[in-house]
Nucleic acid binder design. Structure first.
Lengths: 296, 296
DNA sequence: CTGAAAGCGCTTACAG
DNA sequence: CTGAAAGCGCTTACAG
Protein backbone atom coordinates (compact mmCIF):
# COMPACT_ATOMS: atom_id res chain seq x y z
CA UNK A 1 0.00 0.00 0.00
CA UNK A 2 1.98 2.99 -1.22
CA UNK A 3 0.93 6.27 0.29
CA UNK A 4 0.75 9.68 -1.20
CA UNK A 5 3.65 10.76 0.95
CA UNK A 6 5.94 8.18 -0.59
CA UNK A 7 4.97 9.39 -4.03
CA UNK A 8 5.86 12.92 -2.97
CA UNK A 9 9.26 11.77 -1.75
CA UNK A 10 9.92 9.81 -4.91
CA UNK A 11 8.90 12.71 -7.11
CA UNK A 12 10.72 15.27 -5.06
CA UNK A 13 7.66 17.43 -4.44
CA UNK A 14 5.26 18.07 -1.59
CA UNK A 15 2.17 16.09 -0.73
CA UNK A 16 0.07 19.05 -1.82
CA UNK A 17 1.45 18.86 -5.30
CA UNK A 18 0.89 15.15 -5.57
CA UNK A 19 -2.66 15.63 -4.42
CA UNK A 20 -3.19 18.27 -7.06
CA UNK A 21 -2.05 16.13 -9.91
CA UNK A 22 -3.97 13.11 -8.66
CA UNK A 23 -7.11 15.19 -8.55
CA UNK A 24 -6.47 16.91 -11.82
CA UNK A 25 -6.26 20.24 -10.10
CA UNK A 26 -4.90 23.39 -11.72
CA UNK A 27 -1.72 25.21 -10.81
CA UNK A 28 0.75 22.41 -11.41
CA UNK A 29 3.78 22.91 -13.61
CA UNK A 30 4.23 20.45 -16.43
CA UNK A 31 7.53 19.49 -14.87
CA UNK A 32 6.02 18.65 -11.49
CA UNK A 33 3.13 16.85 -13.06
CA UNK A 34 5.23 14.50 -15.10
CA UNK A 35 7.54 13.77 -12.17
CA UNK A 36 4.54 12.86 -10.04
CA UNK A 37 2.94 10.78 -12.74
CA UNK A 38 6.16 8.86 -13.20
CA UNK A 39 6.48 8.27 -9.48
CA UNK A 40 2.89 7.08 -9.23
CA UNK A 41 3.50 4.70 -12.05
CA UNK A 42 6.75 3.45 -10.58
CA UNK A 43 5.29 2.88 -7.16
CA UNK A 44 1.91 1.61 -8.29
CA UNK A 45 0.20 4.16 -6.12
CA UNK A 46 -3.56 3.89 -5.59
CA UNK A 47 -5.20 6.58 -3.46
CA UNK A 48 -6.78 5.37 -0.26
CA UNK A 49 -10.47 5.87 -0.82
CA UNK A 50 -11.38 6.17 2.84
CA UNK A 51 -8.81 8.87 3.54
CA UNK A 52 -9.93 10.70 0.49
CA UNK A 53 -13.56 10.63 1.53
CA UNK A 54 -12.78 11.71 5.04
CA UNK A 55 -10.64 14.64 4.04
CA UNK A 56 -12.66 15.66 1.04
CA UNK A 57 -16.04 15.29 2.66
CA UNK A 58 -17.49 13.29 -0.18
CA UNK A 59 -17.75 9.56 -0.66
CA UNK A 60 -17.26 9.06 -4.40
CA UNK A 61 -19.99 6.48 -4.02
CA UNK A 62 -23.34 6.48 -5.76
CA UNK A 63 -26.07 4.31 -4.33
CA UNK A 64 -28.51 2.24 -6.34
CA UNK A 65 -31.64 1.48 -4.37
CA UNK A 66 -33.69 -1.32 -5.83
CA UNK A 67 -37.06 -0.44 -4.36
CA UNK A 68 -39.24 -2.88 -6.24
CA UNK A 69 -39.16 -5.53 -8.93
CA UNK A 70 -40.12 -3.33 -11.85
CA UNK A 71 -36.70 -3.59 -13.47
CA UNK A 72 -35.71 -7.08 -12.35
CA UNK A 73 -35.69 -8.54 -15.83
CA UNK A 74 -33.28 -5.94 -17.13
CA UNK A 75 -31.38 -5.29 -13.92
CA UNK A 76 -28.15 -6.91 -15.02
CA UNK A 77 -27.97 -4.75 -18.12
CA UNK A 78 -29.02 -1.71 -16.19
CA UNK A 79 -26.18 -2.29 -13.74
CA UNK A 80 -23.74 -2.65 -16.60
CA UNK A 81 -24.81 0.67 -18.02
CA UNK A 82 -24.63 2.44 -14.69
CA UNK A 83 -21.32 0.94 -13.69
CA UNK A 84 -19.72 1.64 -17.03
CA UNK A 85 -20.14 5.38 -16.76
CA UNK A 86 -19.72 5.59 -13.00
CA UNK A 87 -16.44 3.72 -12.94
CA UNK A 88 -15.23 5.86 -15.81
CA UNK A 89 -15.79 8.83 -13.52
CA UNK A 90 -14.04 7.27 -10.56
CA UNK A 91 -17.29 6.68 -8.73
CA UNK A 92 -18.31 3.45 -7.05
CA UNK A 93 -21.68 1.79 -7.15
CA UNK A 94 -23.20 0.75 -3.84
CA UNK A 95 -26.36 -1.24 -4.24
CA UNK A 96 -29.02 -1.72 -1.69
CA UNK A 97 -32.24 -3.67 -1.93
CA UNK A 98 -33.47 -2.16 1.30
CA UNK A 99 -35.27 1.10 1.81
CA UNK A 100 -32.24 3.29 1.40
CA UNK A 101 -28.48 3.72 1.52
CA UNK A 102 -26.47 6.27 3.37
CA UNK A 103 -22.93 7.40 3.04
CA UNK A 104 -23.24 8.07 -0.67
CA UNK A 105 -23.07 11.24 -2.73
CA UNK A 106 -26.29 10.51 -4.57
CA UNK A 107 -28.78 7.76 -5.19
CA UNK A 108 -30.25 6.14 -8.25
CA UNK A 109 -33.67 4.85 -7.44
CA UNK A 110 -35.21 1.86 -9.19
CA UNK A 111 -38.94 1.89 -8.56
CA UNK A 112 -40.29 3.16 -5.27
CA UNK A 113 -38.46 3.47 -2.01
CA UNK A 114 -37.29 6.30 0.19
CA UNK A 115 -33.91 7.92 -0.03
CA UNK A 116 -31.81 9.79 2.50
CA UNK A 117 -32.64 13.45 2.72
CA UNK A 118 -30.04 15.79 1.40
CA UNK A 119 -28.56 13.73 -1.39
CA UNK A 120 -29.57 14.14 -5.02
CA UNK A 121 -31.76 11.45 -6.54
CA UNK A 122 -32.26 10.20 -10.07
CA UNK A 123 -35.05 7.73 -10.77
CA UNK A 124 -35.57 4.95 -13.25
CA UNK A 125 -39.07 5.21 -14.64
CA UNK A 126 -41.40 8.18 -14.49
CA UNK A 127 -41.14 10.03 -11.23
CA UNK A 128 -42.25 13.35 -9.88
CA UNK A 129 -39.99 15.90 -8.29
CA UNK A 130 -36.75 14.23 -9.26
CA UNK A 131 -34.97 13.84 -12.56
CA UNK A 132 -35.60 10.49 -14.15
CA UNK A 133 -34.76 8.31 -17.11
CA UNK A 134 -37.43 6.29 -18.84
CA UNK A 135 -38.06 4.32 -21.99
CA UNK A 136 -39.30 6.46 -24.84
CA UNK A 137 -42.59 4.63 -25.28
CA UNK A 138 -43.85 7.07 -27.85
CA UNK A 139 -41.01 6.60 -30.28
CA UNK A 140 -41.28 2.85 -29.70
CA UNK A 141 -44.86 2.96 -30.91
CA UNK A 142 -43.84 4.99 -33.93
CA UNK A 143 -41.06 2.53 -34.71
CA UNK A 144 -43.43 -0.41 -34.50
CA UNK A 145 -45.74 1.12 -37.09
CA UNK A 146 -42.83 2.05 -39.32
CA UNK A 147 -41.71 -1.55 -39.22
CA UNK A 148 -45.15 -2.90 -40.09
CA UNK A 149 -45.62 -0.41 -42.88
CA UNK A 150 -42.20 -1.32 -44.21
CA UNK A 151 -43.44 -4.89 -44.41
CA UNK A 152 -46.28 -3.76 -46.62
CA UNK A 153 -49.01 -3.72 -43.98
CA UNK A 154 -51.88 -1.28 -44.34
CA UNK A 155 -54.66 -2.36 -42.04
CA UNK A 156 -52.80 -2.06 -38.79
CA UNK A 157 -54.52 -2.36 -35.44
CA UNK A 158 -53.42 -1.59 -31.91
CA UNK A 159 -54.06 -3.41 -28.66
CA UNK A 160 -53.11 -1.40 -25.60
CA UNK A 161 -53.23 -1.95 -21.87
CA UNK A 162 -54.08 0.75 -19.39
CA UNK A 163 -50.50 1.89 -18.92
CA UNK A 164 -49.63 1.89 -22.59
CA UNK A 165 -50.85 5.39 -23.45
CA UNK A 166 -47.57 6.72 -24.77
CA UNK A 167 -47.01 3.60 -26.79
CA UNK A 168 -50.48 3.96 -28.22
CA UNK A 169 -49.87 7.63 -28.96
CA UNK A 170 -46.77 6.61 -30.83
CA UNK A 171 -48.89 4.23 -32.84
CA UNK A 172 -51.32 7.04 -33.70
CA UNK A 173 -48.48 9.23 -34.80
CA UNK A 174 -46.95 6.46 -36.87
CA UNK A 175 -50.27 5.73 -38.54
CA UNK A 176 -50.78 9.39 -39.25
CA UNK A 177 -47.37 9.73 -40.81
CA UNK A 178 -48.02 6.74 -43.01
CA UNK A 179 -51.35 8.18 -44.04
CA UNK A 180 -53.22 5.18 -42.66
CA UNK A 181 -56.47 5.33 -40.82
CA UNK A 182 -56.05 4.74 -37.12
CA UNK A 183 -59.44 3.29 -36.39
CA UNK A 184 -58.60 -0.19 -35.16
CA UNK A 185 -57.87 0.22 -31.47
CA UNK A 186 -58.86 -2.08 -28.63
CA UNK A 187 -58.03 -1.51 -24.99
CA UNK A 188 -57.05 -4.45 -22.82
CA UNK A 189 -55.98 -5.45 -19.33
CA UNK A 190 -52.53 -6.83 -18.59
CA UNK A 191 -52.81 -10.58 -19.15
CA UNK A 192 -52.66 -12.92 -22.16
CA UNK A 193 -56.38 -13.72 -21.90
CA UNK A 194 -57.22 -10.07 -22.29
CA UNK A 195 -54.90 -9.86 -25.29
CA UNK A 196 -56.69 -12.82 -26.79
CA UNK A 197 -60.08 -11.22 -26.34
CA UNK A 198 -58.87 -8.02 -27.93
CA UNK A 199 -57.53 -9.90 -30.90
CA UNK A 200 -60.82 -11.70 -31.38
CA UNK A 201 -62.70 -8.42 -31.33
CA UNK A 202 -60.39 -6.93 -33.92
CA UNK A 203 -60.63 -9.93 -36.18
CA UNK A 204 -64.41 -9.84 -36.24
CA UNK A 205 -64.59 -6.11 -36.87
CA UNK A 206 -61.90 -6.13 -39.56
CA UNK A 207 -61.19 -9.43 -41.28
CA UNK A 208 -58.78 -7.64 -43.60
CA UNK A 209 -56.42 -6.91 -40.73
CA UNK A 210 -52.77 -7.50 -41.68
CA UNK A 211 -50.78 -6.06 -38.79
CA UNK A 212 -51.08 -5.49 -35.04
CA UNK A 213 -49.08 -3.45 -32.61
CA UNK A 214 -49.55 -4.79 -29.09
CA UNK A 215 -48.67 -2.55 -26.15
CA UNK A 216 -47.04 -5.31 -24.13
CA UNK A 217 -45.57 -8.75 -24.64
CA UNK A 218 -47.99 -10.60 -22.42
CA UNK A 219 -50.93 -9.22 -24.35
CA UNK A 220 -49.18 -10.26 -27.53
CA UNK A 221 -48.93 -13.87 -26.32
CA UNK A 222 -52.68 -14.03 -26.08
CA UNK A 223 -53.13 -12.37 -29.45
CA UNK A 224 -50.77 -14.83 -31.12
CA UNK A 225 -52.67 -17.73 -29.62
CA UNK A 226 -55.91 -16.52 -31.19
CA UNK A 227 -54.26 -15.95 -34.54
CA UNK A 228 -52.87 -19.47 -34.58
CA UNK A 229 -56.08 -21.02 -33.39
CA UNK A 230 -57.92 -19.40 -36.25
CA UNK A 231 -55.39 -20.71 -38.69
CA UNK A 232 -54.07 -17.31 -39.65
CA UNK A 233 -50.42 -17.18 -40.66
CA UNK A 234 -48.07 -15.03 -38.60
CA UNK A 235 -46.66 -12.92 -40.09
CA UNK A 236 -47.91 -13.98 -43.52
CA UNK A 237 -51.53 -13.00 -42.82
CA UNK A 238 -51.09 -10.83 -39.76
CA UNK A 239 -47.77 -9.43 -38.57
CA UNK A 240 -47.45 -8.83 -34.82
CA UNK A 241 -45.16 -6.48 -32.91
CA UNK A 242 -45.04 -6.55 -29.12
CA UNK A 243 -43.52 -4.15 -26.64
CA UNK A 244 -41.28 -4.97 -23.70
CA UNK A 245 -39.31 -7.94 -24.89
CA UNK A 246 -39.58 -10.24 -21.95
CA UNK A 247 -37.02 -13.05 -22.02
CA UNK A 248 -39.91 -15.34 -22.89
CA UNK A 249 -40.49 -13.41 -26.10
CA UNK A 250 -37.40 -14.85 -27.65
CA UNK A 251 -38.77 -18.34 -27.08
CA UNK A 252 -42.11 -17.38 -28.50
CA UNK A 253 -40.35 -15.71 -31.42
CA UNK A 254 -42.18 -12.46 -30.89
CA UNK A 255 -40.94 -9.43 -32.82
CA UNK A 256 -40.95 -6.62 -30.30
CA UNK A 257 -39.90 -3.17 -29.27
CA UNK A 258 -37.27 -3.62 -26.61
CA UNK A 259 -36.28 -1.21 -23.84
CA UNK A 260 -32.54 -0.77 -23.78
CA UNK A 261 -31.71 -1.23 -20.13
CA UNK A 262 -28.01 -0.71 -20.50
CA UNK A 263 -28.72 2.61 -22.16
CA UNK A 264 -31.13 3.52 -19.39
CA UNK A 265 -28.40 2.78 -16.90
CA UNK A 266 -25.89 4.89 -18.73
CA UNK A 267 -28.29 7.77 -19.02
CA UNK A 268 -29.15 7.69 -15.35
CA UNK A 269 -25.49 7.65 -14.39
CA UNK A 270 -24.80 10.59 -16.65
CA UNK A 271 -27.70 12.50 -15.20
CA UNK A 272 -26.35 11.81 -11.73
CA UNK A 273 -22.88 12.91 -12.69
CA UNK A 274 -24.33 16.14 -13.99
CA UNK A 275 -26.27 16.70 -10.80
CA UNK A 276 -23.19 16.02 -8.70
CA UNK A 277 -21.16 18.48 -10.72
CA UNK A 278 -23.67 21.13 -9.80
CA UNK A 279 -24.76 21.75 -13.35
CA UNK A 280 -28.42 22.19 -14.16
CA UNK A 281 -30.12 19.00 -15.31
CA UNK A 282 -33.03 18.26 -17.57
CA UNK A 283 -36.11 16.99 -15.71
CA UNK A 284 -35.96 13.70 -17.56
CA UNK A 285 -34.20 11.74 -20.28
CA UNK A 286 -36.08 9.45 -22.62
CA UNK A 287 -34.19 6.51 -24.02
CA UNK A 288 -35.29 5.22 -27.41
CA UNK A 289 -36.02 1.49 -27.43
CA UNK A 290 -34.85 -0.77 -30.21
CA UNK A 291 -36.84 -3.12 -32.39
CA UNK A 292 -36.00 -6.81 -32.17
CA UNK A 293 -36.92 -8.58 -35.36
CA UNK A 294 -38.00 -12.13 -34.85
CA UNK A 295 -40.56 -14.31 -36.51
CA UNK A 296 -43.91 -12.60 -36.04
CA UNK B 1 -23.83 15.16 11.08
CA UNK B 2 -23.25 14.37 14.73
CA UNK B 3 -19.78 13.22 15.56
CA UNK B 4 -18.60 10.65 18.01
CA UNK B 5 -17.09 13.40 20.11
CA UNK B 6 -20.44 15.05 20.64
CA UNK B 7 -21.90 11.75 21.74
CA UNK B 8 -19.08 11.43 24.25
CA UNK B 9 -19.81 14.89 25.62
CA UNK B 10 -23.52 14.21 25.82
CA UNK B 11 -22.97 10.89 27.57
CA UNK B 12 -20.28 12.24 29.84
CA UNK B 13 -17.66 9.69 28.82
CA UNK B 14 -14.59 9.64 26.61
CA UNK B 15 -14.47 9.05 22.88
CA UNK B 16 -12.81 5.71 23.55
CA UNK B 17 -15.79 4.52 25.49
CA UNK B 18 -18.24 5.63 22.86
CA UNK B 19 -16.20 3.83 20.26
CA UNK B 20 -16.26 0.68 22.34
CA UNK B 21 -20.00 0.59 22.69
CA UNK B 22 -20.55 1.46 19.05
CA UNK B 23 -18.35 -1.43 18.06
CA UNK B 24 -19.75 -3.82 20.58
CA UNK B 25 -16.41 -4.08 22.30
CA UNK B 26 -15.91 -5.59 25.73
CA UNK B 27 -14.87 -3.75 28.87
CA UNK B 28 -17.72 -1.32 29.09
CA UNK B 29 -19.76 -0.91 32.25
CA UNK B 30 -23.48 -1.31 31.89
CA UNK B 31 -23.83 2.22 33.18
CA UNK B 32 -21.56 3.72 30.55
CA UNK B 33 -23.11 1.65 27.83
CA UNK B 34 -26.63 2.78 28.49
CA UNK B 35 -25.57 6.41 28.80
CA UNK B 36 -23.87 6.20 25.44
CA UNK B 37 -26.75 4.40 23.81
CA UNK B 38 -29.15 7.04 25.07
CA UNK B 39 -26.92 9.83 23.79
CA UNK B 40 -26.61 8.17 20.39
CA UNK B 41 -30.33 7.87 20.21
CA UNK B 42 -30.91 11.44 21.31
CA UNK B 43 -28.42 12.87 18.87
CA UNK B 44 -29.22 10.53 16.00
CA UNK B 45 -25.57 9.65 15.69
CA UNK B 46 -24.40 7.66 12.65
CA UNK B 47 -20.71 6.76 12.50
CA UNK B 48 -18.81 8.26 9.61
CA UNK B 49 -17.95 5.31 7.44
CA UNK B 50 -14.90 6.86 5.87
CA UNK B 51 -13.29 7.77 9.17
CA UNK B 52 -14.01 4.33 10.44
CA UNK B 53 -12.39 2.66 7.47
CA UNK B 54 -9.37 4.87 7.63
CA UNK B 55 -8.74 4.34 11.31
CA UNK B 56 -9.73 0.72 11.39
CA UNK B 57 -7.96 -0.30 8.23
CA UNK B 58 -10.94 -2.09 6.82
CA UNK B 59 -13.63 -0.93 4.47
CA UNK B 60 -16.77 -2.72 5.63
CA UNK B 61 -17.47 -3.11 1.94
CA UNK B 62 -17.88 -6.35 0.06
CA UNK B 63 -17.55 -6.26 -3.70
CA UNK B 64 -19.71 -8.16 -6.13
CA UNK B 65 -18.00 -8.61 -9.46
CA UNK B 66 -20.33 -9.61 -12.25
CA UNK B 67 -17.88 -11.25 -14.57
CA UNK B 68 -20.23 -12.75 -17.10
CA UNK B 69 -23.89 -13.20 -17.87
CA UNK B 70 -24.33 -16.61 -16.31
CA UNK B 71 -26.54 -15.30 -13.51
CA UNK B 72 -28.22 -12.42 -15.30
CA UNK B 73 -31.67 -13.93 -15.16
CA UNK B 74 -31.54 -14.34 -11.40
CA UNK B 75 -29.30 -11.39 -10.60
CA UNK B 76 -31.98 -9.29 -8.95
CA UNK B 77 -32.85 -12.06 -6.53
CA UNK B 78 -29.23 -12.89 -5.98
CA UNK B 79 -28.56 -9.26 -5.03
CA UNK B 80 -31.48 -9.31 -2.63
CA UNK B 81 -30.09 -12.36 -0.91
CA UNK B 82 -26.59 -10.95 -0.68
CA UNK B 83 -27.68 -7.53 0.48
CA UNK B 84 -30.04 -8.90 3.07
CA UNK B 85 -27.33 -10.64 5.00
CA UNK B 86 -24.59 -8.13 4.31
CA UNK B 87 -26.59 -5.15 5.49
CA UNK B 88 -27.58 -7.11 8.55
CA UNK B 89 -23.88 -7.36 9.32
CA UNK B 90 -23.18 -3.69 8.71
CA UNK B 91 -21.42 -4.41 5.43
CA UNK B 92 -22.05 -2.56 2.21
CA UNK B 93 -22.33 -4.06 -1.24
CA UNK B 94 -20.23 -2.52 -3.99
CA UNK B 95 -21.02 -3.92 -7.38
CA UNK B 96 -18.81 -3.84 -10.38
CA UNK B 97 -19.41 -5.20 -13.83
CA UNK B 98 -15.79 -4.64 -14.77
CA UNK B 99 -12.87 -6.92 -14.18
CA UNK B 100 -12.52 -6.21 -10.51
CA UNK B 101 -13.11 -3.91 -7.56
CA UNK B 102 -10.64 -2.58 -5.10
CA UNK B 103 -11.03 -1.01 -1.75
CA UNK B 104 -13.21 -3.82 -0.43
CA UNK B 105 -12.70 -6.40 2.29
CA UNK B 106 -13.68 -9.30 0.07
CA UNK B 107 -15.26 -10.05 -3.24
CA UNK B 108 -18.13 -12.19 -4.39
CA UNK B 109 -17.52 -13.31 -7.91
CA UNK B 110 -20.32 -14.08 -10.36
CA UNK B 111 -18.88 -16.13 -13.19
CA UNK B 112 -15.35 -15.50 -14.38
CA UNK B 113 -13.27 -12.41 -13.85
CA UNK B 114 -10.17 -11.51 -11.91
CA UNK B 115 -10.11 -10.22 -8.40
CA UNK B 116 -7.62 -8.11 -6.51
CA UNK B 117 -4.87 -10.10 -4.90
CA UNK B 118 -5.00 -10.31 -1.16
CA UNK B 119 -8.71 -10.20 -0.53
CA UNK B 120 -10.82 -13.28 0.09
CA UNK B 121 -13.09 -14.45 -2.71
CA UNK B 122 -16.31 -16.42 -2.77
CA UNK B 123 -17.70 -17.56 -6.10
CA UNK B 124 -21.15 -18.22 -7.46
CA UNK B 125 -21.11 -21.44 -9.41
CA UNK B 126 -18.48 -24.16 -9.29
CA UNK B 127 -14.99 -22.77 -8.93
CA UNK B 128 -11.61 -24.12 -8.09
CA UNK B 129 -9.38 -22.81 -5.36
CA UNK B 130 -11.97 -20.58 -3.76
CA UNK B 131 -15.06 -21.32 -1.71
CA UNK B 132 -18.21 -21.24 -3.77
CA UNK B 133 -21.97 -21.58 -3.64
CA UNK B 134 -23.84 -23.48 -6.29
CA UNK B 135 -27.20 -25.00 -7.03
CA UNK B 136 -27.58 -28.51 -5.74
CA UNK B 137 -28.22 -30.09 -9.13
CA UNK B 138 -28.17 -33.60 -7.76
CA UNK B 139 -30.95 -33.09 -5.26
CA UNK B 140 -32.87 -31.24 -7.96
CA UNK B 141 -32.76 -34.34 -10.12
CA UNK B 142 -33.90 -36.48 -7.22
CA UNK B 143 -36.75 -34.10 -6.48
CA UNK B 144 -37.90 -34.17 -10.09
CA UNK B 145 -38.19 -37.95 -10.04
CA UNK B 146 -39.92 -37.90 -6.68
CA UNK B 147 -42.48 -35.52 -8.14
CA UNK B 148 -43.09 -37.67 -11.20
CA UNK B 149 -43.38 -40.83 -9.16
CA UNK B 150 -45.78 -39.07 -6.84
CA UNK B 151 -47.92 -38.40 -9.87
CA UNK B 152 -48.06 -42.09 -10.57
CA UNK B 153 -45.45 -42.22 -13.33
CA UNK B 154 -43.40 -45.36 -13.79
CA UNK B 155 -41.72 -45.24 -17.17
CA UNK B 156 -39.69 -42.13 -16.60
CA UNK B 157 -37.03 -41.01 -19.07
CA UNK B 158 -34.27 -38.45 -18.86
CA UNK B 159 -32.96 -36.00 -21.44
CA UNK B 160 -29.70 -34.39 -20.39
CA UNK B 161 -27.35 -31.88 -21.95
CA UNK B 162 -23.59 -32.05 -21.64
CA UNK B 163 -23.44 -29.99 -18.48
CA UNK B 164 -26.29 -31.73 -16.75
CA UNK B 165 -24.33 -34.59 -15.20
CA UNK B 166 -25.25 -33.90 -11.60
CA UNK B 167 -28.86 -33.43 -12.54
CA UNK B 168 -28.76 -36.70 -14.39
CA UNK B 169 -27.09 -38.42 -11.46
CA UNK B 170 -29.88 -37.14 -9.28
CA UNK B 171 -32.32 -38.70 -11.69
CA UNK B 172 -30.50 -42.05 -11.44
CA UNK B 173 -30.60 -41.86 -7.69
CA UNK B 174 -34.27 -40.97 -7.68
CA UNK B 175 -35.08 -43.81 -10.04
CA UNK B 176 -33.10 -46.22 -7.92
CA UNK B 177 -34.87 -45.16 -4.78
CA UNK B 178 -38.23 -45.62 -6.43
CA UNK B 179 -37.22 -49.04 -7.62
CA UNK B 180 -37.66 -48.04 -11.26
CA UNK B 181 -35.41 -49.05 -14.08
CA UNK B 182 -33.25 -46.19 -15.27
CA UNK B 183 -32.80 -47.27 -18.84
CA UNK B 184 -34.39 -44.41 -20.76
CA UNK B 185 -31.65 -41.83 -21.10
CA UNK B 186 -30.86 -39.65 -24.09
CA UNK B 187 -28.09 -37.10 -24.24
CA UNK B 188 -28.66 -33.79 -25.99
CA UNK B 189 -27.08 -30.47 -26.85
CA UNK B 190 -28.32 -27.19 -25.46
CA UNK B 191 -31.07 -26.05 -27.82
CA UNK B 192 -34.78 -26.79 -28.26
CA UNK B 193 -34.17 -28.65 -31.52
CA UNK B 194 -31.89 -31.08 -29.74
CA UNK B 195 -34.50 -31.55 -27.04
CA UNK B 196 -37.05 -32.30 -29.72
CA UNK B 197 -34.81 -34.92 -31.33
CA UNK B 198 -34.20 -36.56 -27.98
CA UNK B 199 -37.90 -36.71 -27.27
CA UNK B 200 -38.56 -38.34 -30.66
CA UNK B 201 -35.93 -40.95 -29.99
CA UNK B 202 -37.41 -41.76 -26.60
CA UNK B 203 -40.92 -42.01 -27.97
CA UNK B 204 -39.95 -44.51 -30.61
CA UNK B 205 -37.94 -46.68 -28.26
CA UNK B 206 -40.58 -46.62 -25.51
CA UNK B 207 -44.14 -45.76 -26.51
CA UNK B 208 -45.24 -46.47 -22.95
CA UNK B 209 -43.31 -43.51 -21.63
CA UNK B 210 -45.29 -41.52 -19.07
CA UNK B 211 -42.78 -39.07 -17.63
CA UNK B 212 -39.64 -37.16 -18.62
CA UNK B 213 -37.08 -35.26 -16.65
CA UNK B 214 -35.30 -32.77 -18.88
CA UNK B 215 -31.96 -31.35 -17.76
CA UNK B 216 -32.70 -27.81 -18.87
CA UNK B 217 -35.68 -25.67 -19.77
CA UNK B 218 -34.65 -25.00 -23.34
CA UNK B 219 -34.41 -28.71 -24.04
CA UNK B 220 -37.82 -29.10 -22.45
CA UNK B 221 -39.33 -26.58 -24.88
CA UNK B 222 -38.31 -28.78 -27.77
CA UNK B 223 -39.55 -31.90 -26.05
CA UNK B 224 -42.95 -30.33 -25.36
CA UNK B 225 -43.27 -29.32 -28.98
CA UNK B 226 -42.79 -32.91 -30.11
CA UNK B 227 -45.26 -34.22 -27.55
CA UNK B 228 -47.90 -31.76 -28.70
CA UNK B 229 -47.24 -32.40 -32.34
CA UNK B 230 -47.79 -36.09 -31.80
CA UNK B 231 -51.04 -35.42 -30.04
CA UNK B 232 -49.87 -36.71 -26.70
CA UNK B 233 -51.42 -35.07 -23.66
CA UNK B 234 -49.15 -33.22 -21.27
CA UNK B 235 -49.20 -34.18 -18.50
CA UNK B 236 -52.03 -36.67 -19.00
CA UNK B 237 -49.99 -38.98 -21.22
CA UNK B 238 -46.49 -37.74 -20.50
CA UNK B 239 -45.56 -35.48 -17.59
CA UNK B 240 -42.58 -33.21 -18.11
CA UNK B 241 -40.25 -31.58 -15.59
CA UNK B 242 -37.59 -29.10 -16.68
CA UNK B 243 -34.65 -27.62 -14.85
CA UNK B 244 -33.64 -24.01 -14.62
CA UNK B 245 -36.92 -22.18 -14.66
CA UNK B 246 -36.21 -19.48 -17.17
CA UNK B 247 -38.73 -16.63 -17.03
CA UNK B 248 -40.09 -18.02 -20.28
CA UNK B 249 -41.02 -21.25 -18.55
CA UNK B 250 -43.84 -19.59 -16.72
CA UNK B 251 -45.34 -18.54 -20.05
CA UNK B 252 -44.91 -22.02 -21.46
CA UNK B 253 -46.36 -23.46 -18.27
CA UNK B 254 -43.41 -25.75 -17.72
CA UNK B 255 -43.17 -27.51 -14.39
CA UNK B 256 -39.53 -27.19 -13.40
CA UNK B 257 -36.83 -27.41 -10.81
CA UNK B 258 -35.88 -23.84 -9.99
CA UNK B 259 -32.58 -22.56 -8.61
CA UNK B 260 -33.20 -20.32 -5.65
CA UNK B 261 -31.08 -17.29 -6.43
CA UNK B 262 -31.95 -15.37 -3.32
CA UNK B 263 -30.82 -18.32 -1.28
CA UNK B 264 -27.62 -18.56 -3.29
CA UNK B 265 -26.99 -14.91 -2.52
CA UNK B 266 -27.60 -15.37 1.17
CA UNK B 267 -25.33 -18.38 1.31
CA UNK B 268 -22.53 -16.59 -0.48
CA UNK B 269 -22.80 -13.63 1.85
CA UNK B 270 -22.70 -15.90 4.86
CA UNK B 271 -19.69 -17.70 3.50
CA UNK B 272 -17.97 -14.36 3.00
CA UNK B 273 -18.84 -13.22 6.50
CA UNK B 274 -17.33 -16.40 7.83
CA UNK B 275 -14.16 -15.91 5.81
CA UNK B 276 -13.88 -12.31 6.99
CA UNK B 277 -14.27 -13.36 10.59
CA UNK B 278 -11.25 -15.57 10.14
CA UNK B 279 -13.12 -18.77 10.81
CA UNK B 280 -12.48 -21.82 8.68
CA UNK B 281 -14.93 -22.22 5.83
CA UNK B 282 -16.30 -25.18 3.95
CA UNK B 283 -15.00 -25.43 0.36
CA UNK B 284 -18.51 -25.02 -1.00
CA UNK B 285 -22.16 -24.73 -0.13
CA UNK B 286 -24.86 -26.39 -2.21
CA UNK B 287 -28.25 -24.74 -2.23
CA UNK B 288 -31.23 -26.99 -2.84
CA UNK B 289 -33.47 -25.84 -5.67
CA UNK B 290 -37.24 -25.80 -5.40
CA UNK B 291 -39.81 -27.41 -7.62
CA UNK B 292 -42.24 -25.09 -9.36
CA UNK B 293 -45.44 -26.88 -10.17
CA UNK B 294 -47.10 -25.68 -13.31
CA UNK B 295 -49.07 -27.38 -16.01
CA UNK B 296 -46.78 -30.01 -17.50
C1' DC C 1 3.01 27.37 -9.21
C1' DT C 2 4.44 25.29 -4.42
C1' DG C 3 4.74 23.64 0.45
C1' DA C 4 3.87 23.50 5.70
C1' DA C 5 0.18 22.73 8.57
C1' DA C 6 -4.24 21.80 10.23
C1' DG C 7 -8.00 18.90 10.16
C1' DC C 8 -11.49 15.24 8.43
C1' DG C 9 -13.92 11.47 12.37
C1' DC C 10 -12.74 7.47 13.82
C1' DT C 11 -9.81 3.27 16.27
C1' DT C 12 -6.36 1.45 18.97
C1' DA C 13 -2.66 0.47 21.88
C1' DC C 14 -1.10 2.22 26.35
C1' DA C 15 -1.23 3.60 30.91
C1' DG C 16 -3.99 3.67 34.62
C1' DC D 1 -13.51 -0.70 33.14
C1' DT D 2 -11.76 4.16 31.40
C1' DG D 3 -9.40 8.10 29.09
C1' DA D 4 -5.51 10.88 26.76
C1' DA D 5 -3.00 10.62 22.76
C1' DA D 6 -1.28 9.17 18.48
C1' DG D 7 -2.25 7.98 13.99
C1' DC D 8 -4.97 6.26 9.76
C1' DG D 9 -3.97 8.81 4.43
C1' DC D 10 -5.79 12.24 2.36
C1' DT D 11 -7.49 17.50 1.08
C1' DT D 12 -7.60 22.23 1.60
C1' DA D 13 -7.10 26.89 2.78
C1' DC D 14 -3.14 29.88 3.62
C1' DA D 15 1.06 32.06 2.99
C1' DG D 16 4.48 32.55 -0.09
Amino acid sequence: MTRLEEVALEAGVSKSTVSRVVNGGPYVSARARSAVLAAIDRLGYRPNQAARSLAGNRTDCVGLVVGDRSFDAGLADLLRGVDTVLSGLGLRLVVSTGASVDGVDGVLRVGGGGVPAGVPVVSFGHAVGVPYVAVDDFSGGVAAVRHLVGRGRRRIAAIAGGGDVDRLNGWYRGMGRAGLSADLVVRAEADPASGARAMSVLLSSEPGLDGVFVGSDVLAYGALEVLRTRGLGVPSDVAVVGFGDLPSSSVVGLTAVRPDHESLGRSAAHLMATVLSGSPVPPFTLVPPSLVLRST
